[in-house]
Amino acid sequence: MSEPLHINQHPGTNPPSFECTVVDSQVIDGDYWVQFDKTYYYPSGGGQPADHGTISADGIKYSILDVKKRSEILHLLSDSVNVDSLVNQTLTAEIDQQRRDILCRMHTAQHLVSAAADELFSATTIGNQINTQKTRIDIGIESRDSFSKDDLESSVNNYIDSAVDVSMSFRPRDELIEDPLVRVNMDLIPKNIHELRVITIDGIDICPCAGTHVGNTNQIGYIEIGKVKSKGAGKLRVEYTLVD
């Protein structure tokens, strides 16, 4: 089984290069995938897209275009290669740092947008899709008239200005259920998971999350809220971008 090193890495910015060994290879629908004994690559999930990067062996460099978690963590190679020949080889892996850092900023900002929407409008986040160019969040809100795009943007940017630490820990599920800063519906998390990886933005938000994040809100940069669309009764889709 691949050791998912990203789970214990926080902050998620500036991921290290690392040595790994290919332990398995697969061809799935004509695509070439490899499994490492350990990996810092983040697999797509929780609304956050996968890391990209490269692996190198014997002077040959291959691009990693996608990472997925099935029964194991699989890495998609860009080239049609004899993947079986890579098995048992030790490689040097490098994650695209610019892409990872932007996704860390976007993902941490998503926690702040969700927290601010809850505080300002009693709105619940019901979905999100993080990306490098823009991120969208779907919120459930009782009164559309209570929503203010400007108030939401201002509140999030004030959180960012406050330079609040962002930390990672592992906490018992039962402990989180009683915490008022946990805004997610804990019933949506399988009950057989008793200890959860948690991202805490001090005094603002506590969220079970396996994604990658910055270490302080001042590393996000400001956000700008763009389109706000109705997605049916009691639902809004809010899009935002980062402002460097």
Rank of each mutant, 00 (worst) to 15 (best):
E175I: 11
T54S: 14
Q97G: 05
D58T: 03
N216Q: 00
A115N: 10
T13H: 04
C20D: 04
H52P: 02
D29I: 03
E19F: 04
Y32R: 11
N128Q: 12
I73L: 00
K134W: 04
S146N: 15
I60A: 11
E119W: 05
R237A: 10
V238S: 07
S114M: 05
L86K: 09
I220M: 03
D161E: 14
Q110V: 08
M106E: 07
E142Q: 15
Y159N: 06
N157T: 07
V166S: 05
I189F: 12
L112A: 07
V81H: 07
I225K: 12
S2V: 11
D96P: 02
I28V: 15
D66K: 09
F18S: 00
N131G: 15
V22G: 06
T13L: 00
I137S: 01
N88M: 08
E119F: 10
R99I: 12
V228E: 06
Q35N: 06
N131L: 00
V166L: 01
T39I: 02
I199Q: 06
P49Y: 04
Y240H: 10
R70V: 03
L152S: 10
D66E: 15
Y62V: 12
S17Q: 08
D51L: 09
D118Q: 15
M186S: 07
G30R: 09
L65P: 01
F170M: 11
V214C: 05
S78T: 03
V113C: 10
I199A: 08
D31N: 14
A93R: 00
N185Y: 04
P43I: 03
T125Y: 02
S143L: 14
K191A: 15
Y240D: 10
G140W: 08
H107N: 06
D79P: 05
A109V: 08
I73K: 05
K38R: 15
D174W: 05
A50P: 05
Q48F: 05
R197M: 03
I126C: 12
N88V: 01
M106G: 01
V22I: 15
R100Q: 11
T125P: 00
D138A: 12
Q98L: 08
T217Q: 04
A93Y: 01
V164A: 02
D84I: 00
L236G: 13
N14I: 04
M186T: 10
A116I: 08
N128V: 00
S80Y: 02
D96S: 02
I204G: 01
C20T: 13
P16R: 01
Y32L: 06
D202A: 13
V81P: 13
P4T: 00
Q219A: 13
N218S: 15
I160T: 07
M1I: 12
D118P: 00
Q133W: 01
Q98A: 14
V243I: 06
D84Q: 11
Y41N: 10
G59P: 07
V184Q: 11
I199C: 07
L242F: 08
E3Y: 01
Y32N: 12
D96F: 01
L196E: 05
